[in-house]
Design a binder for these strands. Structure first.
Lengths: 252, 252
DNA sequence: CTTTTTTGATTTGCATACAACATTAGTCGG
DNA sequence: CCGACTAATGTTGTATGCAAATCAAAAAAG
C-alpha cells in the first residue's frame, strides 16, 4: 500500500497534470491530515509549494518552522531538504540553512538550452516510435492550443502547451529522458510563466507545433529534432530579454 | 576555509581527473584522517567508492557499518545516503536500506541516448564559442588518443578520450550542461569501461574525433552537433550488445 | 519432507538532546 | 555619533535512544 520509495525521483509522473488543475493546492490545512507523514511525503509537499510559488526564490526554509508546521521532528525535515537540494530546487549552505534557489539569467539561459535539447531528442525519438493513438493525442492538444490562443486564454494555452510537449515526451518511450526533463522543468517552473505570455507568441507556437507534428508523423527524425529545438530555443531567446528585465527588479 | 556547501552538486569539477590518475583511491585508511569528516565529506567518499567500483551495483550500504567505518553517527550517514539516492547513484527503499543502483540494459540505453545529446549540444556550443587555446587543447587530447590507440593502450586511451570530450564540454561555456553531463557520466561509469575496449573502436574514434574537431573549428554547429551525437550513439549501439551479454551473467 | 507460522534479531525511521557555528544586539572605546 | 569587540540568542550539525518494520531462522502443522 505504501511503497513510497525514493528511488531516483521516479513516481511523480502525473505531477504536471495536478499542477495544471489545482495550481495552488496546498490550501489544505496540515492539521487536517490523517496520517503523520514522513520524509518522503514532506518532499512532495515542499516541492509543490516551491513549484506553485508559495515559496519564492530566495525564501528561507527554516527547519524548526517546517517541523512545527508538518508536526514532525527536524530529522525528516532535514532529509527532505537534502533531497530538494540535490534535485536543485533549494540551496543548503553549511550552518546557514536552506533557501529556495534563485537563478541568475545566465543560469536560466543555460538551462533552457539543455531543455531545448531534451525536447529535441524527445521529438526525434517520437518520430521513430509514436503510435497512431499517441499521434492523435498530440494533435488534439495542439488543437486545444489553437482554441486557447484564439481566445487569448493564456492560462489555458499554458496548460495545453504543456500537454502537447508532454505527449511528445511520452511518445519518446525514454523514461529517463522524461524524468530528467521533468526535473529540469520543475527547476525552471518559477520563471516559466513570464515567458509564454509574449504578444504573438501563442499563434506562432501553434504553427510551429503543427510543423513539428508533421515531421513526427512523417518519421523525419532530423527535422523533428531540429524544429523542436528551434521552437524551444526561440522561447529561450525571447525569455532572455524578459529575464534580464526581471533581474533588475528586486525579486524579494 | 571549509565552505563545503552542497549547492547542487557543484564543486567536484576535477573529479574526473582524479579518477584517471588514482583509479582506486580510497586505500587511505579512514582512521588516518585528521578531522572527523561530516555528511558533506561522506558524500564525496561514498561517491568515489561507487565510481571506482569499490562498491558494485547491487551492493548493500548498511548505515551502521558505514557509521562505524567513518567514525560518525548514523545521522550524517543517512543524509549522505539520501543525497546519493537523489543523484541517482543508489536506491533507497523504505525500511529496506540502500543499495548501489543496478541499471537494466533498457535504462542504460536510455541514458546513453541522453548522454549523446549532452555531447552533441556541447559540440554545437563549442563550435560557437571555443577559443583558439581551447581548440589547441582539444586537438592535443585527440593526438594523445591516437598515440594510445596505436599502442593498444586501452586505459590510456580511455583517459585521453575522456579529456577530449571534457575539453569540448568546457568549450561549450555552459556550466549547467557540464554539471548535468558529469552527473550522468558518474551514473554510467560502472558500465562504461566495458564499452570502449571494443576491437577497432579506438582507431575509429580517433578519426571521428578529428571530424568533430574540424566542424568545431569551422564553426559549423549543426555538423558538429550531428557528428558528435552519432559518435556517442555508436558507442551506445555497440554498447547495447555488450550490455545484453553482461546482463545474462550474475553481476552479483 | 514440505509448507506455513511465529518469534527473535537486525535495521531502518523518527524524536530528542547536546554541541558547534552564525548572527545579532549590546557595550565599550574612539 | 560611529566603529569594533563581546555576549547573548537562535539555528544548524551530530549523537543517541526508542519504536516500528523487515528479514531470517526455528518451530509447528500438513
Amino acid at each position: 500500500m505504501n511503497d513510497a520509495c525514493i528511488k531516483s525521483d521516479k513516481d511523480a509522473s502525473n505531477i504536471r497534470m495536478r499542477q495544471i488543475r489545482e495550481t495552488a493546492v496546498s490550501e489544505v490545512i496540515e492539521s487536517e491530515r490523517e496520517t503523520r507523514l514522513s520524509a518522503d511525503g514532506l518532499i512532495r509537499l515542499l516541492e509543490d509549494d516551491i513549484l506553485n510559488s508559495v515559496l519564492k526564490p530566495g525564501d528561507r526554509l527554516d527547519e524548526q518552522s517546517l517541523a512545527r508546521r508538518f508536526e514532525v521532528s527536524r530529522t525528516p525535515v532535514r532529509e527532505a531538504l537534502r533531497h530538494l537540494a540535490s534535485s536543485g530546487l533549494i540551496d543548503i549552505r553549511k550552518n546557514q540553512g536552506a533557501t529556495v534557489k534563485r537563478l541568475t539569467t545566465a543560469e536560466l539561459i543555460e538551462m533552457f538550452q539543455v531543455m531545448a535539447e531534451y525536447e529535441g531528442l524527445s521529438a526525434r525519438l517520437s518520430a521513430r516510435r509514436m503510435t497512431t493513438a499517441e499521434i492523435a493525442e498530440m494533435r488534439n492538444w495542439n488543437e486545444e492550443c489553437r482554441v486557447r490562443a484564439d481566445k487569448e486564454d493564456h492560462d489555458g494555452f499554458y496548460a495545453a502547451n504543456n500537454m502537447f510537449h508532454e505527449a511528445i515526451f511520452h511518445g519518446s518511450r525514454n523514461e529517463f529522458l522524461q524524468e530528467e526533463s521533468r526535473k529540469l522543468r520543475n527547476r525552471l517552473n518559477a520563471y516559466r510563466r513570464h515567458i509564454t505570455t509574449q504578444p504573438r507568441r501563442m499563434q506562432k507556437s501553434v504553427i510551429e507545433h503543427g510543423r513539428i507534428a508533421d515531421a513526427i508523423v512523417a518519421g523525419d527524425e532530423d527535422t523533428a529534432h531540429s524544429l523542436m529545438r528551434q521552437h524551444v530555443d526561440l522561447l529561450a531567446g525571447t525569455a532572455a530579454d524578459v529575464l534580464l528585465a526581471l533581474e533588475s527588479e528586486t525579486t524579494e
